[in-house]
């Protein structure tokens, strides 16, 4: 069947490759091309400015604010999500102790597993609207409604000190369920005998967690960090829907993706938006590269 092999492969690949080339690669080349032009998004592209858009970016305080907020998410989102997901996954799978040669989760763990996964099923836009109400700044807000009548309402998203933290909470809430499932799968791969041996030696649940589960799960945890790190560069939907004055109050929740959107479609600065996109591209790529090379070293050592 050798002579039939190449036509078959080509026939199989031509459609996806063409789609990819047109909708990703070609669009990408255009974005790079547009980033060196001043272009409103309408009409001919004529005004070449070289690195002008990038120069403008350096002096744009909102750009640096947005980078700062993306960095805030990049550090905290993976950390908090992974820790929470690990604890929950451990409790669901191993936390119930050891009986009849099988490790079990805490009582009711099957129900919890379903509940944890629920947030994954909701569209991000819906999550944003729901949490907009949860963080409502007056008594009609869910959290404020739970506080005693005499308390001053917390402003949450309307307070620039806490607004970004509110976004982080929602991102974590949404992500944890998925990683609980991911880690549970990883824990299922850890041989029972290891736990048994440890239990016979009198290890407590805490010891089991730190001495057995975490080391044997380390590779899965690394994958989680990469995923979550990339998710931290986005956060567009939540910020766009939930926050005061979109990215406010006064830029306190602005992120890069929102800046790109607003410059391209609201401020008629498609050239500048493309330049921001190029920056986001390189930032994301370097993050992926750093993480990949770090993990490669790890797996050689392992």
């Amino acid at each position: 069947m050798r002579h039939g092999k190449y036509p078959f492969i080509i026939g199989f690949l031509v459609v996806p490759v063409a789609l990819y080339a047109i909708f990703v690669v070609w669009a990408y080349i255009q974005a790079f091309y547009l980033s060196v032009y001043e272009w409103s998004g309408l009409g001919p592209v004529t005004n070449f400015v070289g690195l002008g858009n990038f120069q403008k970016m350096i002096h744009d305080t909102l750009f640096w604010q947005s980078i700062k907020h993306n960095a805030f998410l990049l550090i905290l989102l993976p950390l908090i999500t992974v820790i929470l997901a690990l604890v929950f996954a451990f409790l669901l799978n191993v936390g119930g102790g050891h009986k009849g040669g099988v490790t079990r989760g805490v009582w009711g763990s099957k129900v919890y597993r379903v509940i944890f996964f629920f947030p994954q099923l909701l569209a991000l836009a819906i999550v944003a609207v729901i949490f907009g109400r949860v963080f409502g700044p007056d008594k009609s807000g869910m959290i404020n409604g739970l506080f005693p009548e005499s308390w001053q309402p917390w402003l949450f998203l309307a307070d620039e000190r806490y607004a970004m933290a509110c976004i982080l909470v929602v991102l974590v809430w949404q992500a944890v369920g998925f990683y609980v499932v991911l880690f549970s799968a990883g824990m299922g791969n850890i041989p029972q005998e290891v736990y048994e041996a440890a239990a016979i030696d009198g290890a407590t649940r805490v010891t089991l967690f730190f001495r057995i589960t975490i080391p044997l799960l380390w590779n899965t945890v690394q994958v989680a960090f990469v995923y979550l790190g990339i998710a931290a560069f986005d956060a567009f939907a939540l910020v766009n829907i939930m926050t005061v004055d979109r990215g406010g109050p006064d830029g306190a929740t602005s992120v890069l993706s929102l800046m790109i959107y607003r410059n391209a479609f609201e401020f008629s600065q498609a050239g500048y938006a493309s330049a921001l996109g190029v920056v986001l591209f390189f930032v994301t790529l370097s993050f992926a590269w750093v993480t990949l090379s770090a993990t490669r070293r790890e797996s050689v050592e392992a």
Binding site: F23, Y28, F233, D234, S274, L280
Partner: peptide, 8 residues
């Protein structure tokens, strides 16, 4: 999903 699609 993040970088490559946001820009184009």
């Amino acid at each position: 999903a993040v970088g490559l699609l946001a820009t184009p």
